[in-house]
């Protein structure tokens, strides 16, 4: 089913998207927020620029954006897949618990903060370009990969992984990573560690028609929390 979002208020657009079974294609999307929120089983293809909180609480549906997305994509996402052919804004994948987000371009500040994992649910974010500061803050689980494609400088900003206490962050760069907070250890990823992300790199390459060999076998750093429970020594009972 095709929908033109031109001049449609967000509430009406989202009602129609939810009511449509199976695959929905939205044309002329002009910043309508909350598209696909909470959707379980459908496929939404968007041409244009969806607004904030695209796919919030997503629970199994697939969203593909041919264009850029804005802030809070995949907020508290539980399952499903979001593919963005352009850039994404701030707070991408906030508190995401499951599913996958692939961004071909860059993502903004606070990417993947508060991500967590649980049993079979292990969220994945792969960003093709670079990200802003505060990547993976409070990270409690899941995988974040920043590929830095076409980026010479280190593809992450400041304060990466502050408060991290679970999960992994992979960063592809030839530069030496420095300035990380004390909660984080960074090492060059081993072959075994690369094996963990290889299926997602292959999926990324397939989605965006890229050659896996051009980026999958380069130097990656892997960031891990250096203590499982970083705060427990902070308090004294009283």
């Amino acid at each position: 089913m095709h929908l033109s979002a031109e001049n449609l208020p967000f509430r009406e657009l989202n009602e129609r998207v939810k009511a449509a079974p199976g695959e929905v294609q939205i044309d002329n999307c002009y910043g309508q927020p909350f598209v696909g929120s909470g959707c379980k089983d459908k496929s939404i293809i968007i041409y244009g620029t969806p607004g904030n909180a695209l796919g919030a609480y997503l629970d199994g549906a697939e969203i593909v954006v041919h264009g850029n997305a804005q802030d809070a994509v995949g907020d508290t996402m539980n399952d499903g897949r979001i593919v963005i052919h352009g850039h994404a804004g701030d707070a991408l994948g906030y508190a995401m618990r499951g599913g996958k987000i692939y961004v071909r371009g860059n993502a903004g500040y606070r990417t993947g903060i508060h991500m967590k994992q649980y049993q079979e649910k292990r969220p994945v974010i792969v960003v093709g370009g670079k990200v802003g500061s505060f990547l993976g803050e409070y990270l409690a689980g899941g995988l974040i990969v920043v590929l830095g494609l076409g980026v010479e400088e280190i593809p992450v900003g400041s304060f990466t992984g502050t408060g991290m206490h679970g999960g992994r962050i992979y960063i592809r760069t030839k530069q030496k990573l420095s300035g990380l907070p004390p909660q984080v250890t960074a090492e060059i990823a081993s072959d075994a560690e690369m094996g963990e992300i290889m299926p997602f790199l292959a999926e990324f390459a397939g989605l965006f028609d890229l050659d896996l060999k051009q980026f999958a076998f380069d130097q990656y750093y892997v960031l891990k929390p250096n203590a499982k429970s970083p705060y427990k020594k902070l308090y004294t009972a009283h």
């Binding site: 967590k116 649980y118 409690a140 499982k228 705060y231």
Partner: peptide, 10 residues
Amino acid sequence: RMIPEGSDAI
């Protein structure tokens, strides 16, 4: 809470 046992909930 849907987090692993023993993990801090922050």
